[in-house]
């Protein structure tokens, strides 16, 4: 909901325009990269890492929203920005992520890979330096979730 608001921050022209930034002002015009785009890049980068099962939005059961997304979409362009919030400045960005990881992985190792990938992708695609990536693992995904519920009920 809040993510739908596209943030096109106004900036004052600078004397020496930075080589690259999300809000880059030159004499020919201004280049703006929406926060949503930065969030999407981060979301894609996070999902690329094996062990990351799903990104989940705050609040209402993460698995549920993940399911809804999978049911609703199925197409190619279905990568949203759920589970990702970004704070974008002139030159730097901070990313907060909520995710579900697969059972069996080392969370610190997966998280490290996610942080590296987000930092690299956001930097190469937008020129922004990622200062911080905070990751919260909200759930684990058990491949045989069904089996687990069965044994519990027995």
């Amino acid at each position: 909901m809040a993510e739908t608001r596209q943030n096109v921050a106004e900036t004052r022209p600078q004397e020496t325009a930075p080589a690259r930034a999300t809000d880059l002002v030159t004499e020919h015009g201004r280049t703006t990269i929406a926060d949503d785009v930065v969030a999407k890049i981060a979301a894609i980068a996070a999902r690329e890492v094996p062990g990351v099962h799903e990104l989940v939005s705050q609040g209402v059961g993460g698995t549920l929203s993940g399911l809804t997304q999978r049911v609703a979409g199925g197409g190619g362009d279905n990568i949203g920005t759920q589970g990702v919030s970004v704070e974008v400045g002139q030159r730097e960005a901070a990313v907060d992520l909520r995710m579900i990881v697969d059972y069996g992985v080392s969370i610190p190792q997966v998280a490290d890979a996610v942080r590296r990938n987000i930092r690299n992708r956001v930097n190469s695609m937008t020129g922004l330096t990622v200062r911080e990536v905070n990751i919260d693992v909200t759930d684990l995904y058990f491949a045989q979730q069904q089996q687990q519920t069965d044994t519990r009920v027995q």
């Binding site: 596209q6 990269i33 929406a34 785009v37 999407k40 890049i41 190619g76 279905n78 990568i79």
Partner: peptide
């Protein structure tokens, strides 16, 4: 005057379903 460019979205996977 100026030509402002805003990248407002990213599309993944080329074609839309």
């Amino acid at each position: 005057g100026g030509i402002d460019v805003t990248v407002e979205d990213l599309r993944v996977g080329g074609e839309q379903p």
